[in-house]
Write a protein that binds this DNA or RNA. Structure first.
Lengths: 240, 240
DNA sequence: AAGGCTGACTTTGTATACAAATTGATGATG
DNA sequence: CATCATCAATTTGTATACAAAGTCAGCCTT
């Protein structure tokens, strides 16, 4: 039978005004992805409630979900903040993403349905074009959309969801550790190579392309521990 | 009907243990792991609140986190239920776990620190002994503890956390799809073989052992779609 | 007898009140 | 001047009230 809430949801999408916790989660995730909310940004419940026009109940639910996904960190009686992973955790995030995204593209290469192929190609070209134009924010957006497309069309949806989370966490650590002088994180040819491997249906070439891409990206970061970044809690926390 | 996990919860309340949302999450996770809360079990907020001696606010926070981890499923204005993944999702969970647990044991095999080795061996023997005794619940507990040990000691903590979640989801689908006549899911020799590969530091042998173990486990399930299990939403949902 | 309507009951969604903890500034004290 | 106690302002933790939606049994209609 047709359940009523589904109809309501569709109607709300059409009118576009309904705000719920899922909406807030999505907005914050997007803001973090686009690096408009840098690591350690404070996210007080009342302020968010006023911004989105809801009470703290709804905001708290959204924050709980974001904390579950490691987008923000919460400590008892303290303001929620955008996560700021340590150097060690950063390396582990990249390693996990290599594993998961590698498997996803390998599965995609073996996928017969070509629905995502044209979109992938478009985004590849759009990213190169934005880079040529020197429009870095636009390039980042296309690049993120490309990886998001991989996650969305993953034949294994569990791995797809994991990849979505890892892409977001990667975005956070890039904002944290990107070399100061670096103008762009564009890696010439990486995405086209991936596209070609997928088009050719070559699983291992696709996996290798992603591995190389993520290795290069990680290499662009400054992961030497700076004094301001040293995690005192990790050093002294256990004995406290 | 008063089931056992509820009684244990009441014991906690009596002993004055401080109850917060994390505690409730842990208790429900354990109950699901031990298959004392079967798939589709209703989890009403007020009932849980009375059992744990807290208000709905705390219960709701716990349920939100459990839903984030795919332990329960929530639909608007409806009672939360223990998840009951479809057959397709079950296959994807196993595939994801093969990938993640395979990598974790490969990393562990290369790990020099032997802190976990004795514990692993103990659990291996304890499981075999419980099986020989015909004590299936005890065997399951040791088996789960073994896999949990792998996750806990994963050199890559992101992959370790992912593995913990996947172990729980695997437990759910086993409860759902286990062959009716099957007395035990014990797979003779699988865990000892893994232990030996880890002791020898052979990454690929360890990965192969886990792959074989999970393949065998999946093969024990009855994944032919039954009429009661057909997901109508997946069939008709998109056009609505 | 099958199907649909109704209305009481159950359950969740949201806002809000109050308690408890953290934070930061201010002033006292050695 | 440095250090520490203290207090007000901010912020989160929890409970609760009320509104809105879902559920289901029982009756009515055809």
């Amino acid at each position: 039978m047709s359940s009523r809430w589904q109809d309501e949801v569709l109607a709300d999408v059409a009118s576009g005004v309904r705000i719920n916790d899922q909406h807030i989660v999505e907005r914050i995730r997007q803001a973090v992805l686009m690096q408009r909310l840098p690591p350690n940004t404070r996210l007080p419940e009342v302020a968010l409630g006023e911004i989105f026009g809801v009470s703290r109940s709804v905001v708290r639910k959204a924050l709980t979900r974001l904390a579950s996904d490691h987008v923000i960190t919460q400590q008892p009686n303290q303001v929620a903040r955008v996560s700021a992973p340590s150097v060690d955790e950063t390396r582990e995030i990249f390693a996990a993403r290599r594993l998961v995204e590698g498997e996803v593209v390998a599965l995609l290469a073996a996928d017969a349905a070509p629905a995502w192929r044209t979109r992938l190609s478009e985004l590849c070209d759009a990213e190169a074009e934005a880079h040529a134009r020197g429009d870095e924010p636009q390039r980042i957006e296309h690049s993120l959309a490309l990886h998001h497309t991989l996650a969305e069309h993953s034949p294994n949806r569990i791995l797809g969801a994991m990849l979505s989370d890892l892409i977001l966490r990667t975005s956070i650590v890039i904002a944290l550790y990107k070399h100061a002088g670096l103008a762009s994180c564009y890696l010439e040819g990486d995405h086209p190579r991936l596209r070609d491997a997928l088009a050719a249906g070559d699983c291992e070439a696709a996996r290798a392309a992603i591995h190389h891409h993520l290795d290069s990206l990680e290499a662009l970061l400054d992961l030497r521990t700076k004094s301001s970044q040293i995690d005192l809690a990790a050093i002294f926390g256990q004995s406290a």
